[in-house]
Design a protein around this nucleic acid. Structure first.
Length: 767
DNA sequence: TTAGGGTTAG
């Protein structure tokens, strides 16, 4: 695998800066310095004899005698030298053996003053070696630019490696302006692709995006003499995938354009980078850009692999874009890109998450089919099985999930993983079969599959949802004792459970326990407690927890703000509600339909209909349409105000003119109000209306009716409705039972009630 | 591949 450029570079620079021979007092290092890997230095062979001889001679001759030494002149400068190998690289090697740049510079001056050709490549190489020595010396920052100036004054052409060295050195030292000076003073034809790559890298690292792009644009020009190569691509693609790029923001359109233009030069990002870019686009909700980029590259003939397709597929899946997923699969086939197990996993997972488990099973079966035909055959792995098992559980078919686990074991010999068990435990627990959840928990322990915090949370959630809060608490304590500590999710489940049964104190205690346990909280657990406290009307505490949330580095989101606004409204603290609203807007969040509905509901309940109306106007101005909840608030308000006529007027308006159709709650408000003022017949006709419109009555609807019917002693109608409840499997609650029990006992119809309740007998609850 | 989320009308 090719080393990413940044890695290659940093390793080099480490080698480069290795302190060398600084302690040696001799003129020359004892050992030749190994050439830095980036230089195009001669192959590592034994030094030519001329180098060895010259080094020895130079060592023996005092510096002020070099000029007069005919031996030295003979060896190095004479064209009739026997070795005849005055290759520039010899000068490079000789110079490198000096232990200080000052001495090396003296050598340069000696060579220069005795050289016939002022522009000799030997001088270039000698100078390169001087720079390499200087870079390792103290105060190299000042020294290097002075040396560069000396080089220019002497009209010595910078070698490619020397130029590279200077560009990179000044870049690293934060002296990018000097890098630019060096680059700009290079001969036109010396600014080749290699040099440009170095400069672009230096500029990008310094955040000079536009300067870098200027250099790059010349390269990307169709007529460019120095087109980009793979290294250019590596530099740009690596930089594009970096999380934090210094310098100006580069738009997604620019990125797509850039990668595409590279593609036109036959330079493509590798699979890893392309995959990262696609993933990145999806994370910032720019899936379209990912799609376009992928297809541009496909058109340009890039070698695309399954991993990049998978990134695209999973993004499309998250967006629910099955159409494009199918298109991409077809394109993969056409372009001979073999799907892998991840590809199938994404497809199966998406189908499962859309509750299309039967289709998911079909895809699963196709994985194996290829074996028989000439198609592709991909062996499903445990993850694929787990995905399907979870899919079954999520649609309430946990029994089938269980048999799939058995099949996986018997047919494939795969042992279930902790995730397999977690999916099943969660499935059975959600369905209320806590016992089966616990059985599976025992089974995994017996098999040596270690439960994790997900296992615990699934069981705890199941217990809490099905009225076994204290079993859940015991279980959490037992697991903690055994070393399996809960996390934020565990605490959220418990806090919600206690809030739901109105035991706020216990919820608060668990929150405090979490803070003390050292478990790292997230925003959600704060939201849960804030909501519970608001529900309980403990607004001071709610505000306190909100301040703790902020102190912990989280931010309230719009739902959290709405919860608090609602809490203050319910407590009749409008000023505080507005304070929260102001804070919310200050945080850049605009009120949404819930915010508006909360305020409208408050004013309607207080009979301030004109204020409610002006809020509705502002809501419309903000482009938010009234919802069924808005109408419910108005209708409820007028009903409470005793103005049923106005309530009915709004109801009729919404039914006829607006696009919002009334729901059960709207009917319930009206039916309840009509019954309360004795208009039972009107209430009954509203129930008929519900039937006609396909709006289902619920227990609350029947309860409202029962109360009204009881006042009028309309027994027959009541029996009628009780039959309907049975027919529609709408179970009575304790309110229905209270009304009916009292009334029907009075009139001696307990037998009817007994039969009625028997119809709703549920299987014995494990609680 | 697996676990948790809080609003508004009755």
């Amino acid at each position: 695998m090719k080393l990413p450029v940044h890695l290659a570079l940093s390793t080099q620079s480490k080698l480069f800066l290795k302190p060398q021979s600084l302690l040696l007092l001799r003129n020359f290092s004892a050992e030749p310095t190994p050439p830095p890997p980036q230089t195009q230095s001669p192959p590592r062979e034994s030094e030519s004899s001329i180098v060895t001889q010259a080094v020895d001679l130079l060592r023996q001759t005092p510096q002020d005698e070099w000029t007069s030494s005919s031996q030295l002149r003979q060896l190095l400068l004479s064209s009739s030298s026997s070795s005849s190998s005055h290759s520039p690289r010899d000068f490079f090697q000789i110079t490198r053996r000096f232990s200080s740049s000052a001495e090396a510079l003296s050598f340069f001056n000696y060579v220069k003053s005795n050289s016939e050709n002022e522009n000799s490549p030997s001088l270039s190489y000698t100078f390169q070696a001087i720079l390499e020595i200087a870079i390792r010396e103290p105060n190299s920052q000042d020294k290097l630019f002075d040396l560069y100036k000396t080089c220019k004054e002497n009209n010595v052409t910078l070698s490619v490696n020397a130029a590279t060295l200077l560009l990179r050195f000044f870049g690293k030292a934060g002296m990018v302006d000097k890098s630019l000076v060096v680059y700009n003073e290079l001969d036109e034809d010396a600014r080749n692709t290699h040099i440009r790559n170095v400069l672009i890298d230096v500029l990008l690292r310094d955040g000079r995006v536009d300067d870098a792009f200027n250099v790059l644009d010349e390269m990307l020009d169709r007529e460019s003499e120095f087109p980009p190569n793979d290294v250019t691509g590596d530099i740009i693609f690596y930089w594009l995938t970096k999380k934090r790029r210094p310098g100006r923001y580069v738009s997604d359109e620019e990125i797509v354009g850039l990668v595409t233009t590279f593609g036109e030069h036959g330079v493509f990002p590798n699979t890893v980078w392309l995959t990262q870019l696609i993933t990145r686009f999806y994370r910032i909700a720019k899936g379209c850009q990912a799609w376009d980029l992928f297809h541009e590259l496909m058109k340009l003939g890039a070698d695309l692999e399954a991993a990049s397709c998978n990134a695209l597929l999973s993004g499309l899946g998250r967006d629910g874009d099955f159409k494009r997923m199918n298109q991409l699969l077809t394109e993969m086939k056409e372009n001979n890109i073999q799907p892998d197990v991840v590809t199938f996993g994404i497809l199966i997972n998406r189908l499962c998450k859309s509750y299309r488990i039967d289709e998911a099973v079909k895809v699963f079966e196709e994985m194996n089919k290829g074996k028989e035909s000439d198609g592709v055959s991909v062996e499903p792995d445990v993850i694929i099985y787990n995905t399907l098992i979870d899919g079954f559980c999520k649609v309430g078919r946990q029994e089938e999930g269980l048999s799939l686990m058995k099949r996986m074991r018997s047919e494939k010999g795969y042992a279930p993983s902790v995730a397999t068990y977690n999916c099943l435990i969660d499935g059975f627990c959600k369905a209320g079969n806590i016992d089966m959840g616990q059985e599976l928990f025992d089974e995994m322990n017996k098999e040596g599959v270690k439960p994790n915090v997900v296992t615990v949370n699934s069981l705890v959630d199941g217990m809490c949802r099905h009225g076994r809060i204290y079993s859940a608490v015991e279980f959490v304590k037992e697991m903690t004792y055994k070393g399996l500590k809960g996390n934020a999710i565990t605490y959220t489940v418990l806090i919600n459970a206690f809030c739901n049964v109105n035991n706020i104190q216990e919820a608060v205690d668990w929150f405090n326990a979490m803070c003390q346990s050292g478990c790292s909280a997230d925003a959600i657990v704060y939201y849960a407690l804030i909501a519970g406290l608001c529900q309980a009307g403990r607004m001071k505490d709610a505000s306190f927890v909100a301040s703790k949330l902020k102190a912990a580095g989280f931010y309230p989101d719009i739902v959290c703000y709405n919860v608090m606004i609602g809490g203050f409204c319910r407590r009749n603290k409008l000023d505080e509600a507005y304070e929260v609203l102001k804070e919310m807007e200050g945080a850049g969040m605009k009120p949404d339909c819930v915010t508006y509905n909360t305020l409208i509901s408050y004013f309607c309940k207080s009979g301030k209909f004109s204020v409610a109306n002006s809020i509705m106007k502002r809501m419309a101005k903000d482009g938010i349409m009234p919802t069924v909840v808005t109408y419910g608030a108005l209708i409820n308000g007028y009903c409470l105000d005793g103005d049923i006529d106005e309530a009915m007027k709004i109801f009729k308006e919404m039914s006829s003119s607006s696009k919002v159709s009334p729901n059960t709650v709207i009917y319930n408000i009206l039916i309840d109000s009509l019954c309360k003022i004795g208009k039972v017949e009107s209430a009954l006709s509203l129930m008929d209306d519900m039937g006609n419109k396909g709006v289902k009555p619920n227990t609350a609807t029947y309860n409202a009716m029962f109360k009204g019917l009881r006042e009028k002693n309309m027994l027959e109608k009541t029996f009628n409705l009780m039959d309907k409840m049975v027919e529609h499997a709408c179970p009575p609650d304790y309110i229905s039972m209270e009304i009916l029990l009292e009334w029907l006992s009075e009139v001696g119809e307990t037998e009817k009630l007994k039969k009625f309740t028997q119809e709703f007998r549920v299987s014995p609850s494990p609680a």
